[in-house]
Nucleic acid binder design. Sequence first.
DNA 1: CGTTAATTTGAATTCTCTCAAACTTCGTGG
DNA 2: CCACGAAGTTTGAGAGAATTCAAATTAACG
Lengths: 246, 246
Amino acid sequence: MSIANRPLARKLGAFAVLSEDELTVLEAMHRRRRVYSPGQDMIHQGQERHSAHVLASGWTSSYKLLPDGRRQIVDFQVPGDFLGLRSLLFRTSDHNIMPVTRIEASEVSIQDLLRDFNRVPRLAAAVLWAASRDEAMVVEHLVGVGRREPRERLAHFFLELHARLRLVGLATATSFDCPLSQYHLADALGLTAIHVNRVLRGFRETGLMRFQKGKVEFLDLAELVRLAGFDIAYLDQEEPLLSAAL
Amino acid sequence: MSIANRPLARKLGAFAVLSEDELTVLEAMHRRRRVYSPGQDMIHQGQERHSAHVLASGWTSSYKLLPDGRRQIVDFQVPGDFLGLRSLLFRTSDHNIMPVTRIEASEVSIQDLLRDFNRVPRLAAAVLWAASRDEAMVVEHLVGVGRREPRERLAHFFLELHARLRLVGLATATSFDCPLSQYHLADALGLTAIHVNRVLRGFRETGLMRFQKGKVEFLDLAELVRLAGFDIAYLDQEEPLLSAAL
DNA sequence: CGTTAATTTGAATTCTCTCAAACTTCGTGG
DNA sequence: CCACGAAGTTTGAGAGAATTCAAATTAACG
């Protein structure tokens, strides 16, 4: 894969046009690549020594568990996303990360990151931007769970995923592959899988969208955006903020 | 107020013991202090030029609005907290910030911050730690709204506030002043104010805790912690209950 | 004081969950 | 290649929790 087409480079490209040097450093971040399998935590709550990763392919989920087993999925990560970046400064990780599919990811230590930041300072801003964007997504997620109806919530969820995947070249204008189960959706959106199923059936029957066999298809994108009240601004991914000159 | 006793210094002190130099820089952050009144936004969604602030006294809320007026409060800020730190790298602010009480806050520009980081590098780590902690609170908030029952949710909410206020010396072992209305609680916790009222009545009647006339009193802290499943680890602040000075 | 904001209570409704079970898909091993 | 089991999806019925609507009471503030 050519450097500039890697999901991470594409994503950070939405913040700033990247130079050859910067692209090279990003490429180097993928050096220590490893494969992880679905179902086994890469990082778990309370873990003391934890590092961050860059996700090269596949999907992961970050989540927290309550003592009685209830689960809240905080976010899903798609190619180009960082894993565990936020809690890098914490003594212990405060959440779990588990692959949803088979994934390829590369470990990035805080030392690596700081060294890279020194070499190409603009990269620091880009990575912090990505971290800010991650938090903005958690905030919007909170808004959905707290104040959106289940139908709006599902619609908004799929529209966000679509925008994120489009940015890294993994979606068409009206569809994308989605490896999540209805249990994933339920635990992400504060619903039961049964109710998720019913809402999805409603979407199918009213010709809004379809989610079947690992594929999301938008049938009436405009109406979906209206229903969800989806405003992409919080993803801050319109066009690069920083010109190459900065 | 002596420098080391300022809420901001106390809070960052939970991350690292601060030197005289570092305390002096923190003190300088409070130079451009201003007073803001409750009810009028300091920052609003979509605002283009926005800066961060340090809150010296009073409470604020950060929130998002849906097109039809529904409101989700993302977090409340108490003395020592930053306002709008997260979206500093964004083109436009993605949320609103409004004082809950009369407040004193000082503007901190990104330039100021970067200059200070150069002068005292450890401060950068401390501020990033504070930002990570803020995000951890949003995540825990999401867990509450998504997967905790209303009773657990309220209990957890008050326990978190208590821990945060204790850290900056604004709470006793079992109580603190709280200027929030039941509408605030409702919009923060994804409930209606009516239901919040009923849950609070239940707490009062069962001798768990009391929230009346701007004051929160814990009557059975142990049971409350158990009910909420409250584990302070996500705040990454050691031994909050041992901070003596009130 | 008088007015507005906030809290409190009641009754009815509605939405989502729980419980139960059938059906489908998919991977694995015989 | 089929049988089997596990995981995921789908449907139904009933229960319960939180909401909506309505209104009284209390507190806050100029």
